[in-house]
């Protein structure tokens, strides 16, 4: 039963499918490049991210400093690619947490009518809070740190996934093959993981990509407000926050980290859109 999707079916290679979709291919290429730059930052960065050089403060972009220098004479290019490490890490970790919590809640709510009432109410109520505001409150309650930002964003975005998973589970649980599995005496937890969850991979993947994008935007917002990670830790948000005082005087300090955020979020959204088209042609392409 489980082999249906993996073997014996004549499907085109995944790489061909991806390349056929321009947005997906471009999105993947850009996000891969950004990730690579961030991971290889120690090799690529011309300067250490925290190397101070007061004589060279607020120098404009040049061949010596590609993106200029900030108020402490630190190289903005080096800081931008180093900051990518943390920004991407927070986004990825928050998305993973949201996925674990959201999938569990969604599948339980979709499967057990009794749990559904409670879980659905909680999901509705959670979604009544604007994301940044709820994240701010959670970070305030848990105490600001890198870990709490991840936990807060994970909690904030979990209901979005839970809602998608619940809706799909409600449909799938009524399908004949699930009924057949039940009739054969397959235990419920096994039906949930093997028969239902496997068919949910595409909507989850699509939604998770968008959550990744939103989480990165939210993290930048939290760091900018100074309620997220400590201001000394370079993330794109904290860089923009500290460059804020020099707007109009040294714009490069805020422009480049901002462009990094935009490029990352943009490529993630392109990947999400592309994946949605690729994995589920029935879903609306027009939206």
């Amino acid at each position: 039963m489980a082999a249906v999707s993996s073997a014996g079916v004549d499907t085109p290679r995944i790489s061909t499918l991806i390349l056929q979709r321009r947005t997906l291919a471009i999105g993947l290429a850009v996000i891969a490049t950004i990730t690579l730059l961030a991971v290889l930052a120690p090799l690529i960065a011309p300067y250490a991210p925290n190397k101070l050089s007061i004589v060279n403060r607020l120098k404009p972009p040049s061949t010596t400093w590609f993106f200029g220098t900030d108020e402490f004479g630190r190289d903005v290019f080096s800081r931008t690619i180093y900051a990518g490490q943390l920004s991407l890490l927070v986004g990825a970790a928050a998305t993973t947490l949201a996925a674990v919590v959201g999938i569990t809640l969604g599948i339980v709510a979709g499967f057990f009518r009794k749990a559904d009432g409670v879980v659905s109410r909680i999901i509705d109520a959670m979604m009544a809070f604007p994301d940044i505001l709820l994240a701010i409150a959670l970070v305030a309650a848990l105490g600001p740190s890198l870990a709490t930002v991840i936990i807060a964003l994970g909690i904030v975005y979990a209901p979005r996934l839970a809602r998608v998973v619940r809706a799909s589970t409600l449909v799938i649980r009524e399908l004949p093959y699930v009924e057949a599995a039940r009739a054969l005496g397959v235990p419920t937890w096994r039906i949930m993981t093997r028969h239902v969850l496997r068919n949910l991979v595409s909507p989850i993947l699509v939604q998770a990509t968008f959550i990744f994008a939103y989480a990165m935007l939210a993290e930048a917002g939290l760091s900018f407000l100074g309620v997220g990670v400590s201001p000394e830790v370079p993330t794109w948000g904290t860089m923009i926050a500290s460059g804020r005082q020099y707007v109009g005087q040294a714009d490069w300090v805020t422009i480049f980290p901002g462009l990094a955020i935009i490029l990352t979020v943009l490529s993630l959204q392109l990947v999400g859109d592309g994946l949605r088209d690729l994995l589920d042609p029935r879903l609306r392409k027009d939206l």
């Binding site: 935007l217 804020r244 707007v247 901002g258 959204q269 392109l270």
Partner: peptide, 23 residues
Amino acid sequence: TVLAASIPSFWLGLILIQVFAVR
């Protein structure tokens, strides 16, 4: 629209300040 949805509003705010208020 995809591009606009990727811009952090606070960053756009800073750019607007720089162009329309400072310059």
